[in-house]
Amino acid sequence: MVIFKKNALFLVFSLFLSLFIFSNGMIKEKRKILGASYSIDIPSTPPNVIKLLAGEFSGIIADYLLLQIGSYIGSNSEISQDQWKIIHLGFEQAFELDPYFQQTYFQAQAFLAWDANMPESAIRILEAAGRKRTWDWRPGYYAGFDYYYFLNDFNTASDIYLKTAKIKNAPVLLALLGSRFAIKDKRTEASIAVLKLMLKDNDLNKNDKKEISDRITILKSIEVLDKAIQQFKKIFLVYPSTLDELVYYQILKQLPENPYSKKYTYNPDTGEIKFD
C-alpha cells in the first residue's frame, strides 16, 4: 500500500511535470515570433487619474510605461492609427507621471511626429516638457522643428526658436534659425532684439559672438532693403528688377553691408530678399 502511494505520488508529479514542460515549451514557441511585446497594456484611464493611482510610485510607473511603448513599437512593423492613439495616451500618461523625464519627450518626438504622423500630439508633449524643463533647450528645438517641417508654420517655429535660444547653453543655431524664419514672416525686428540680447551673454565664445553679430547686421540690412523695395514699388508701381536699381534711382546711397560672402538672393516678381 505504501509503495503504491509513493508510486502514485511520483506518477502524479511526473504527469504535472510533463504537462508543465509541454505547455511551457508551446507558449515559448508561440511567443517567440511575436517579438519583445505582442500587445500594449496602456490603461485607458485619463493621465491625471493614473497619477492618482500611481501615488508615490509615479516615477517608476512612468519608466515602465515608456519601456513598454518602446518595446512594442520596436517589435511591430505595422501599427494602426488606433494603436498610435493608445501609444499617444501612454506618452501623455508617462508625462503626467513624471513631467521631467527626458525619455518621454524624446520618444514622443521620434515616434509620434515621424512614425505616427501625429506632429500636433508630439508638439503638445514637447511644449509641456519645455515648460517643466526650463533649463533644457531640446523640447523647444524639436517643437520648433515640428512646426516648420510638418505644419509649415514658420511664424510659430520662429517664435519658439527665438524663445528657446534664450535658454542658457542653447546652441546659437536656434537663434539663427529663429531669425531666418522670422524673415519669412517679415518679423525681423523681433529676431534682432533676441540676437542683441544673446550678444550680451558673457559665456558665448568668439565664433558664436561673430556669428550672432553678422546675423544682426544682415537682418538690419534686409530691413533696409525691404523698406527701399517697398518705396521703389510705391514710386514705380513694380518691384526693381535688380537690387542695384535701388542705388541707381537713388533710393539708397549704396547697398547695405553684407557680412557673408554670398550675395543677396532677390526675386523681382515678389520683391522678396533672401541671404541664405
Partner: peptide
C-alpha cells in the same frame, strides 16, 4: 538591467528604482 534599457536620463531611472524599492 532595467536602467540599461533606457537611452536618456538613466540616472533618473536608477534613482527611481532605488527609492521606490525602499518605499515598497
Amino acid at each position: 538591467i532595467f536602467t540599461g534599457m533606457f537611452s536618456w536620463d538613466l540616472s533618473k531611472v536608477a534613482v527611481d528604482m532605488g527609492l521606490s524599492t525602499v518605499s515598497f
